Simulated assay, not measured.
Amino acid sequence: MSFDEKLKAFPSVREHYDAMAAAGEVDPDQAQLALADRFDRLIEELGEKRLSKKSSALGWLFGRKTANREPVKGLYVYGEVGRGKTMLMDMFHALVPVKRKRRAHFNDFMADVHERIHAHRQAFKRGETKQEDPIPPVADALAEAAWVLCFDEFTVTDITDAMILSRLFSALFVRGVVLVATSNVKPDNLYRDGLNRQLFLPFIDLLRWHVDVVNLDSRTDYRLEKLNRQPVYVTPLGDTAQRQMDIAWEIVKDGVEERSDVLTIKGHEVPIPRAAGNAARFSFADLCSRPLGASDYMAIVRRYQTIFIDDVPALDYSRRNEAKRFILLIDTLYDHHARLVISAEAAPEKLYSAPSGTEAFEFDRTTSRLFEMQSAEYLKAAEEGDPRAASDGAVTGV
Rank of each mutant, 00 (worst) to 15 (best):
E5R: 14
L7F: 13
A9Q: 15
A9H: 13
A22N: 09
A23S: 11
L33H: 14
A34T: 12
R38F: 06
R64C: 04
V72N: 03
L75D: 04
Y78I: 03
Y78Q: 06
M87T: 04
L88E: 00
L88D: 01
D90P: 01
D90W: 02
M91K: 01
H93T: 07
P97G: 10
H105R: 07
A111G: 13
T129W: 09
D133A: 11
A145K: 09
F151G: 01
T155N: 05
T155R: 13
V156E: 00
I159W: 05
I159V: 15
A162G: 03
S166T: 07
V174G: 04
R175I: 01
K186G: 15
G194P: 02
G194E: 04
L207C: 06
D212L: 02
V214N: 00
N215Y: 03
R219M: 09
N228S: 07
L237H: 04
D239V: 12
Q242P: 00
Q244E: 12
Q244C: 09
I247Q: 12
D254Y: 10
E258L: 04
E258D: 05
V270I: 15
R281D: 04
S283F: 08
C288E: 01
P291T: 10
L292D: 00
G293N: 08
A294F: 07
A294W: 05
S295F: 07
Q305N: 13
A314N: 02
A314H: 04
D316T: 10
K324G: 03
L329H: 05
L329E: 04
D331F: 08
T332A: 06
T332F: 03
R339T: 10
V341A: 08
S343C: 08
S343F: 07
E349V: 05
E349T: 08
P355T: 14
P355S: 15
F361H: 12
M373F: 07
Y378W: 14
K380A: 15
K380Q: 13
G393I: 14
V395L: 05
G397T: 09
